[in-house]
């Protein structure tokens, strides 16, 4: 995998070698007129967006623009905040995820999440990765679990580094390794969508490059949504980009188009560094 393919390439030209184009275009999550309130504060206003399967979608925008808030709505992580209220429709494969009958636990098994700061549990590397499969009952026996763990660690591109010390604590790894471990942990539950909230902001440039490369690989199997404050990163890893500003979705489109030929003047100001 080289770094050039992400630069300006549109996914349709990147993927068809292995996958049918139909698959790529499929809508995974569609949000319509989403409003989010924190108590009295109106944090997200009228956001409508369609997120595609097997695509990396980047949310960019200045701090406090609501991009992380919106991301957390996609797997109902905001449920844990008492004062948060979500209105509008967010559908995953056509099912409203805020429907009363939806169990957030099942939802989050389908929509995994990776956080800004690497947060490995204070357990062994193995147990970190096995946590999700265990609670969801994905493995029938130890051998299966071993296999899942290995596959997840391989997909997290960290297998070679940790395969000899699966029993040592996950907190003992370096920052970049921890974040890749967290990604491996997230993919171990076989999610369909992977949400990443500024996954590289706590990492050094080398670790960032490794994680970015990993994201690009993950696109083969998942729909990845990444929040980032770095426009370069958005340009490098994503095929679609959404620009948020003051709680509004200002512009959404092909990454190449957003970065080279933005429609909205606000997008242009942000990209050229006038707001941020």
């Amino acid at each position: 995998m080289d770094a050039t393919n992400a630069k300006g390439n549109v996914p349709m030209y990147d993927a068809p070698m292995r996958k049918a184009a139909v698959d790529v275009n499929e809508n995974k999550i569609s949000a319509k007129d989403v409003q989010v309130y924190y108590g009295e504060t109106h944090a997200i206003k009228d956001v409508s967006v369609d997120i595609l399967d097997k695509t990396v979608t980047a949310f960019i925008g200045p701090s406090g623009c609501g991009k992380s808030t919106f991301l957390r709505c996609l797997n109902r992580m905001n449920d844990t905040i008492d004062s948060c209220r979500v209105e509008g429709l967010i559908a995953l494969d056509g099912e409203d995820i805020y429907d009363k009958r939806v169990d957030p636990v099942q939802l989050r098994a389908k929509v995994g999440m990776v956080f800004q700061k690497p947060n490995p549990f204070p357990k062994s590397i193995y147990d970190n990765v096995a946590y999700g499969p265990r609670i969801h009952g994905l493995a029938r026996n130890k051998a299966e679990l071993d296999e899942i763990v290995e596959r997840a660690l391989r997909r997290g591109a960290i297998w070679n580094e940790v395969k000899d010390r699966l029993d040592s604590p996950g907190t003992g790894l370096s920052g970049g390794q921890q974040q890749r471990l967290c990604i491996a942990r997230a993919v171990a539950t076989e999610p369909e969508v992977l949400l990443m909230d500024e996954p590289c902001s706590a990492l050094d440039p080398i670790a960032t490059a490794q994680v970015e490369e990993l994201i690009d690989e993950l696109r083969e199997n998942y729909s990845v949504v990444i929040v980032t404050h770095s426009m370069q990163q958005a340009a490098r890893v994503s095929q679609k980009t959404a620009f948020f500003h003051l709680g509004n979705l200002v512009e959404y489109g092909e990454t190449s188009q957003i970065f080279t030929n933005p429609v909205d003047p606000r997008t242009e100001s942000y990209i050229t560094g006038r707001i941020g």
Binding site: N75, M77, T80, V105, Q106, L107, R108, A109, K110, G112, M113, V114, F115, K117, N119, P120, F121, P122, Y131, G132, I135, H136, C182, R185, A186, T189, L195
Partner: peptide, 14 residues
Amino acid sequence: PQSLRDGSYGLGAT
């Protein structure tokens, strides 16, 4: 830390 809780919820734990 809250991040550990988030990590667990994010994986679909109850």
